[in-house]
């Protein structure tokens, strides 16, 4: 049976997105360039967006990694110049190796802590707007009145906040030592996210 959009979005928010940074590290370990990683991750989300239901997926993280690996291999095969070593690396990447430690899966306090850190890292104005909108649940109009700025400013700051948080979710070197312990080469534009 099809699920509603909000059910799928909630599932992606809880089961997929928290693993995105690990996925990116895993792909880089397989030899994907920064540009490849962006495109592969985007395509993986496109495939998730095409699903009518996610209730058959028992392990979101493994599903995400498997999907990304398929995307990466298809891209290699389509390329004008075939990078064999990269293809074999991607192929050899072990889904099991990507498993996070058990406590990380169950510890919701850590997840909360992670969100707090993401929000606290936003620039001041942006953080203020973002907290009022997302944490305190004020409407755009209410925030506009409270801060004495136009609704356009509130809208722009909220969008900026979400963009920065998305970038941080993509780039943060998080608690998984299997990922963060690797040399961080070839991605000069990731510094901001750390």
């Amino acid at each position: 049976m099809d699920q509603t959009r909000s059910e799928i979005v909630a599932w992606v928010g809880g089961q997929i997105l928290p693993h995105e940074a690990d996925l990116r590290g895993w792909l880089r370990r397989g030899g994907a360039s920064e540009c490849d990683v962006d495109d592969i991750v985007q395509e993986a989300y496109c495939r998730l967006a095409a699903l009518k239901s996610v209730s058959h997926i028992t392990n979101g993280r493994a599903y995400l990694f498997q999907t990304a690996r398929n995307v990466a291999l298809e891209r290699v095969r389509r390329a004008r110049i075939i990078r064999i070593d990269y293809a074999t690396e991607i192929d050899a990447l072990n889904i099991l190796d990507s498993e996070p430690s058990q406590e990380r899966v169950v510890d919701s306090r850590r997840e909360l802590q992670r969100v707090r850190i993401l929000i606290e890292a936003l620039p001041e104005r942006c953080r203020e707007v973002f907290k009022l909108r997302r944490i305190h649940g004020l409407s755009q109009r209410e925030v506009s009145d409270l801060l004495n700025v136009t609704e356009n400013v509130v809208e722009a700051q909220a969008a900026r906040g979400l963009r920065l948080i998305l970038a941080a979710l993509a780039g943060e070197a998080n608690a998984d030592p299997k990922v963060s312990g690797r040399p961080a080469h070839e991605h000069p534009n990731r510094k901001r996210g750390r």
Binding site: I8, G13, E43, R134, L162
Partner: peptide, 17 residues
Amino acid sequence: GGALLRAQAALSFLDRA
């Protein structure tokens, strides 16, 4: 479509918090 899902998922992730 994929990018929108991801952005909406991020909002949902924050709301979960």
